[in-house]
Design a protein around this nucleic acid. Structure first.
Lengths: 189, 189
DNA sequence: TGCGTTTGCCTAATGGCTTTAGGCAAATTA
DNA sequence: TAATTTGCCTAAAGCCATTAGGCAAACGCA
């Protein structure tokens, strides 16, 4: 029989597409095999196991997200940078809900340290350079920004803001306004 | 044989305990049956299916969380109320990680409308009465608060803030300070 | 108290997903 | 072209979800 040409690479990318189509937690080695018209066992030459597949999708998503964020940040500062960065997250989650969910997967410490998660943290700090925050306030602000971005996108994806006025887009804009104002006027107790 | 005395009630509570012990996504009808020393099929007289079980756990968690929040809010206003409310979420997530995860389950619209989720929204609005916000800013603020609370707790539970200075508790306090300052000084473009 | 009905838990069976072991044929290398 | 490596397959075991049908315990009423 002709070979299917499977590689870990291709499987990971197909897994990411599958995640976007059916949801990250519906991503299964079996479904992936079906997609390649291949028997399930064949995937185990390329993937350690199901968890391995999920981790690879997560790492892929983190890279993509970091690449997009880096693009968006180029040449911007201050509120402009803040908004661009935030919009990348939100847009990515809308375009690629499965991948976005994958990016939230808990990685083991080694994987996390080697992942693009590190770049995300660096970019967030870069944005804060446009505001006047010393440590440890800068770290507090990094955490706050991460919380708002992830929290908002996550609630929005879960349908929390649909079917009620005002528009979610409006709340998003005003949230970014509010964060900008907050960072420019960070309270020191 | 003596009967085990299963009820939907008891199964739901046991499911919630199981969730806290092994994680919400490890909650399985089989595991629950084992816990009652009963055959799996027996549970299907009390539960429609696995999804039904998970939904019930979610509703239970939402109720518990709303009860705690209501207690915490009693007699408080302004920043005091904000802090108490936020701390309830964070503490609940720490004490009951499985239940907290369950509370984030996406419910179908009817279930959501009948759930304690409605009380959560009302309480958040009640807190904002201590600040001077008109509609639609009040709604924007409700969404922002929800995003921060959920986002922070979720990132913290995922281990995002551990193993790095400053302490997560410190960031949490400063985040609440920041939110209070922001609400007192909400930007109007 | 005894009898009929309801109800609870069981056995049995099907089908899906994961994972491992071992085999044959295609691709690669010499 | 022959030898070796590698890729996909068959087979099999184990766990989970779910349904159908059966027996016995509990309940309700005379």
């Amino acid at each position: 029989m002709a070979r299917a040409g499977l590689t870990t690479e291709r499987l990971t990318r197909a897994g990411a597409e599958l995640a976007d189509e059916v949801g990250f937690d519906q991503v299964t080695v079996s479904a992936l095999a079906r997609r390649f018209d291949v028997k399930v066992a064949s995937l185990y030459s390329h993937l350690k196991n199901s968890q391995d597949l999920k981790t690879r999708i997560a790492l892929l998503a983190l890279e993509e997200l970091a690449d997009r964020a880096a693009d968006a940040l180029a040449g911007r500062a201050g509120k402009d940078a803040l908004t661009a960065f935030a919009n990348v997250y939100r847009a990515y989650a809308r375009e690629h809900p499965g991948r976005y969910a994958a990016a939230r997967l808990r990685l083991d410490p080694e994987a996390a340290a080697a992942s693009a998660g590190v770049r995300h943290a660096q970019m967030t700090r870069a944005i804060l350079r446009g505001y006047d925050l010393e440590e440890p306030d800068q770290t507090h602000a990094v955490r706050l920004l991460g919380s708002v971005f992830h929290g908002y996108v996550s609630l929005e994806m879960a349908g929390g803001f649909s079917h009620s006025a005002p528009d979610s887009q409006e709340s998003w804009s005003r949230t970014l306004d509010a964060l900008d104002a907050l960072l420019r006027n960070w309270p020191t107790p």
